[in-house]
Design a protein around this nucleic acid. Structure first.
Length: 708
DNA sequence: CAGTGAGCGAGCTTCCGCTTGACTT
């Protein structure tokens, strides 16, 4: 009796207190606040709050015990959360339902227990953990009603991952400082990405073009003319290595008898593509819109956080960092209704399309899709910037298309026989658009239809043979799109790190972007060689896979997490010690010779990497200390000067003439590698309405061309 | 929209993964 009274009075006391819900993202906090009503306070942790310190190792090298601190730029957020916790009746940890989210919950719980709850004496403040996969009111309420425990096994897997990355990153990087150059970096993800790019460059360097010829025959029947491509000789794929062979084939074909061979009609069905995840969004935006990974993610963030549509701010897409193609049942119903209302019957499949995730997917968030399928891109175009419109258009269309039926194309192929040679002519056309009615970005060129009334055995005459000399091409360099695709397939990196990793490689001057292509610099190749030669087991596409396997054992079998760290760390330390002893000092070995000559001593100038980027220095150093900025191309204003990069006020860079003050040319536009065909001055990149152009800045020239 | 103007060769630098904001000129 007395007990219940006590409980009742305690309840009364805390009745005015709110329950504190903590999520990761501020936008998510806003949304959930609406679902939960006035009894709840919803706040965001804005990602991790507690981590290893940046300025030192922060890991005991014998025990692997981590030394966690509140991250420097998060102390304010943490204080805010502590203040809210002091006045909360309950704390509900609602970070994302994945490995990192579990660690965030764990760290907040420990911090709150220690700093806040242990000091509240008159009442008990429970800390609960909830998880939900989709941000809808029923899902959130369901989760609130069924709190669970923090999963220590997930937390421990995260700790393994974190400590392994710290040990490797913070021990490999100093090796590079000592042997190559200060401020360089190495790590489990970035160094493998660099290796991938460097190996492609090696392939390109080694590539020897091989000559081959393509042959086309022009044929005529009584009523028709058609062109066939030589595809087979003597039943085998036609391979024409040189002109002599091509000439001989031409002669034989012209002399021989031609007739229609087999005619085939082939139906091809193409299934819709899955809705976007982070990696595929970055790929499509890079390939179709030409956006870099970083640009894509910035625009997606704007769409996610919300756009002012007249009166209210509306989030237009779901969360943009995800590895899952999952679509919430409510959204599924909405998109199927949209297709029903706007398309003929055949465009909606009987049952929803489901797409498999990768095994490694953490599945914490839905696919990237339009939040409200009724918001057609063209309906809200006027509220969006051109970039926002284009990206939203892509996401909306991909989402709708992902729930539509396959497209059907028909290919009509006519074979033409001439002796032992077989020529092939074909056309293809869409029989049923299916999902391509909504999602079709590759430009389909109109193909000429072949005649349909030819029959096998019909005689033809050859009127002409086209011979084209060709050469095999080296494999293409990686782009943001293909690198992200490769990384995702290999399980290297996460949705939140694809774009930053590419940026890190660029920031370290390991790679450069020319157009869309990622090219390693000399520095990048030197660093890569050092790492790959000495740490082949670590700088390896299989390393992350092996690590993930062991993390799975921590998550599922409760394997001891520090043991996993030890397993990877012990062999590493041996190799590292050896590396310090054996590797020669490579400083300066990545300097590139140039054609520029030192005006002071006549020696060649070297392109060197300094604190402010590349500069030219005399190869006679230290006898000749001549140094100057790297010339980037002919000045568009004067005859003698070169454009050089300069640092202006507030850390902003600009480009000016090397002869300043004689010539006062200056601009903020980035110079390109190309020069103007009219006057030889360097062309500059200019962004206009989302398109990048190369323009000549010479007065009165006006030359411009689209940038590739 | 306009706007600028060392000398790098010394004494900290760095990882991966979550998430956005930004003290003053």
């Amino acid at each position: 009796m007395a007990d219940t009274k006590k409980k009742a009075s305690a309840k009364k006391k805390t009745a005015h207190l709110k329950k504190l819900v903590i999520v990761e993202s501020p936008s998510k906090a806003d949304t959930i606040k609406k679902y939960l009503g006035s009894g709840y306070e919803v706040k965001a942790s804005v990602g991790h709050l507690i981590d290893l310190p940046r300025s030192r190792m922060g890991v005991n090298l014998e025990t692997f015990e981590p030394d966690y601190i509140v991250m420097r730029d998060k102390s304010k957020v943490m204080k805010d959360l502590r203040d809210a916790a002091k006045n909360a009746s309950e704390i509900i940890l609602a970070s994302d339902p994945d490995r990192e989210g579990e660690a965030i919950a764990y760290h907040i719980r420990n911090h709150m227990n220690e700093k806040v709850l242990s000091k509240i004496k008159n009442r008990v403040v429970p800390i609960r953990r909830i998880k939900f996969e989709e941000i809808t009111q029923p899902a959130v309420l369901e989760a609130i009603n069924h709190p669970i425990e923090i999963d220590t096994r997930l937390v421990n897997a995260q700790q393994s991952r974190r400590v392994i990355d710290r040990l490797f990153g913070y021990q490999l990087s100093p090796l590079l400082w000592k042997k190559v150059k200060s401020k360089l970096s190495a790590g489990r993800v970035q160094s493998v990405a660099l290796r991938i790019i460097c190996e492609r460059e090696d392939e390109i360097d080694k590539f020897v073009p091989v000559e081959y010829w393509e042959i086309k025959g022009h044929f005529k029947s009584k009523k028709h003319a058609l062109i066939g491509e030589l595809s087979k000789i003597g039943g085998k794929k036609a391979e024409i290595p040189n002109q002599e062979t091509a000439d001989r084939i031409e002669k034989e074909t012209l002399a021989g008898k031609s007739s229609i061979g087999n005619i085939a009609v082939r139906q091809q069905s193409r299934k819709a593509l899955p809705p976007f995840i982070t990696s595929t969004l970055q790929q499509a935006a890079n390939n179709i819109l030409g956006y870099s990974s970083i640009r894509t993610m910035m625009i997606a963030q704007e769409l996610y956080e919300g756009i002012n549509l007249g009166s209210t701010r509306t989030g237009l897409i779901t969360y943009m960092r995800t590895d899952s193609t999952r679509v919430s049942p409510i959204a599924m119903e909405a998109v199927r209704k949209y297709i029903t209302d706007n398309f003929d019957k055949g465009f909606l499949p009987d049952t929803p399309n489901f797409y498999a995730n990768k095994k490694s997917a953490q599945d914490a968030h839905e696919a990237i899709r339009a939040s409200d399928v009724a918001l057609h891109p063209d309906k809200i175009k006027s509220y969006l910037t051109p970039d926002q419109y284009k990206l939203y258009n892509l996401i909306w269309r991909r989402f709708v298309a992902s729930q539509m039926t396959p497209s059907q194309t028909e290919t009509y192929t006519i074979e033409i026989e001439n002796g032992d040679k077989l020529f092939t002519a074909s056309d293809s056309h869409t029989v049923f658009e299916g999902y391509q009615a909504v999602y079709q970005f590759s430009k389909t060129k109109k193909e000429k239809m072949l005649p349909r009334d030819l029959k096998k055995g019909d005689e033809l005459t050859v009127t002409k043979i086209d011979k084209d000399q060709k050469f095999t091409e080296p494999p293409p360099r990686y782009t943001d799109a293909s690198l992200v695709k490769t990384m995702e397939e290999l399980g290297i990196g996460r949705p939140s790190t694809y774009a930053p990793t590419i940026f890190t490689l660029t920031k370290r001057y390991y790679i450069m972007k020319s157009g869309k292509s990622l090219t390693p610099t000399e520095l990048g190749r030197v660093v890569n060689k050092l790492l790959v030669d000495n740490f082949p087991d670590l700088i390896n596409v299989g390393f992350t896979a092996k690590m993930e396997d062991e993390l799975d054992e921590v998550e599922e079998g409760g394997k001891e997490w520090k043991g996993v760290v030890r397993h990877f760390y012990e062999p590493f330390t041996h190799v590292l010690t050896k590396a310090y002893e054996q590797i020669d000092n490579l400083k300066g070995s990545f300097d590139e010779e140039t054609e520029f000559v030192c005006e002071k001593c006549g020696k060649k100038m070297l392109k060197k990497l300094g604190r402010f980027g590349y500069f030219l220095a005399c190869s006679g150093w230290p006898d000749c200390r001549n140094a100057k900025p790297l010339p980037l191309g002919r000045c568009p204003k004067c005859e003698t000067g070169q454009v050089v990069k300069k640092k202006g006020g507030r850390g902003k860079y600009f480009y000016g003439c090397s002869t300043y003050p004689e010539c006062d040319f200056a601009t903020f536009l980035e110079p390109s590698k190309e020069s103007c065909p009219n006057d030889g001055s360097v062309l500059f990149n200019k962004r206009e309405k989302g398109e990048t152009k190369l323009i000549c800045l010479k007065e009165g020239c006006g030359y411009e061309k689209p940038a590739e």
